[in-house]
Computed example of a mutant assay.
Amino acid sequence: MYTKAELSRIRKSFWTAFGTYMRPIPNAQGRRVNWQNYKTGVKEIYFRMKAERGFASVGIEITHRDEELQELFFEQFGQLRKILEESTKEAWEWKLHEQNEFGQVISKIEKVKPGVNVLNEEEWPEIISFLKPRMIALDEFWDLVKPGFEDY
């Protein structure tokens, strides 16, 4: 069993390692970017990465409090689904109106890798190899489609 402090230290070490690994990689516009805290520039749309016990995931979260507007954003992404799948070269899971770990209703489009454990440092390369190409692809996708979301 790990203490809360140990869990926190291990997770922090993982994200520091991930950030160090990703630091030299520019975004789609050739600029430096903080990959682990990616800023979409559009309120209520976030790119989230998770590395936990049992899975890693990367995705787009739509957190607008107004569920109808959240659904509109989700539908707008739905119209861009083919572009997303071409950018990432894979199908992603689409989830409208589900609760997150804080009890908030969100919608998300994500890819999950089950069977990995961030607490096992030997699995970090596998987790990073999962997250890296998907974040780069999301950035390229977002560079193409962001103007359509900026007016909301």
Rank of each mutant, 00 (worst) to 15 (best):
V42I: 11
K82T: 07
V42L: 08
I25Y: 04
I109R: 04
K12H: 06
M1P: 08
L138I: 10
T20D: 13
E123R: 04
P125D: 01
M135L: 13
W35Q: 02
E150V: 14
Q29N: 00
E90D: 03
S57V: 03
L84A: 06
Y21L: 08
E68C: 07
K4D: 10
W15H: 07
K89W: 08
Q70H: 13
I45V: 14
T88A: 15
P24T: 05
F141E: 03
S129W: 03
N37W: 14
K132W: 03
K43P: 01
W124L: 05
S107I: 08
E86P: 01
N120H: 15
R32G: 09
S129R: 11
G59T: 01
P24D: 03
S13K: 09
I136N: 04
G78V: 12
K111R: 14
F14Q: 01
W92L: 00
I106C: 15
E123A: 11
L119R: 05
R11D: 03
Y2G: 01
T88R: 03
E85R: 10
S129M: 03
R134E: 08
I60Q: 01
M22Q: 08
L80T: 12
W92K: 05
A17H: 09
P114V: 09
F73P: 11
E86W: 02
F102D: 14
K146I: 02
I60C: 10
I109H: 02
F130W: 04
R65S: 09
K50S: 07
G19T: 02
L7K: 11
I83Q: 07
V116W: 10
E85N: 11
N120Q: 11
N37R: 15
K89L: 01
Y21P: 00
E93Q: 13
L138C: 08
E98H: 11
L7Y: 07
G103M: 13
D139T: 09
V112G: 13
E122I: 06
K89D: 03
M22D: 00
D151T: 14
I136L: 15
M22P: 00
N117H: 02
E71K: 15
E75R: 08
L138V: 01
A91W: 13
N34M: 04
P133E: 10
E93T: 13
N100D: 15
E98M: 10
V105Q: 13
W94A: 09
